[in-house]
Amino acid sequence: MSITAIIINSIVAVCLALSLLKSREKTLLALKVAFNAAKRIGLEVLALIIIIGIITGFLPNRSVAALIGSERGLLGVVIAAVLGSVLFMPAIIAFPLASTLKSMGASTMAITAFITTLTMIGFVFLPLEIKELGKRFAFLRNGLSFVVAIVIAVIIGVILG
């Protein structure tokens, strides 16, 4: 286990212990919620593990670098941002995917844009957002989120190189 994983697990263990001290029933309920979530995303996680294997195993590194690598510059960032807006996947599995793409030559800027648009912009949810909050609100939020995602990506790309 890496140090990060140990720290994460310890934090959660402390939270779990505190919760258990306060209420047994609520803690059991929380574990039930967690188990249900595991059932819900379990298949996707397994699929992702295989997909990551396929990407790293069979896809040549240069194809990723050519699409969203740093030589692509801002265009690569925009491509990643568009991909992130259109695709729909839980953030939990998006982070491992992003780290794989990064290790294969995707630029930090591109994966930042990908993660940010993936989480902030939901094409799948757009009809619902329009219905509940109006066209103007939904378009403003999603459109501006896209712009902000690119700005965030550029800032982080510049800082982290």
Binding site: I8, N9, A34
Partner: peptide, 17 residues
């Protein structure tokens, strides 16, 4: 994945409750 995912899900459950 397996070293952190269970913890993450448990934390989510704790928040929900």
């Amino acid at each position: 994945m397996i070293t952190v995912l269970p913890s993450v899900l448990v934390l989510m459950g704790l928040f929900t409750v």
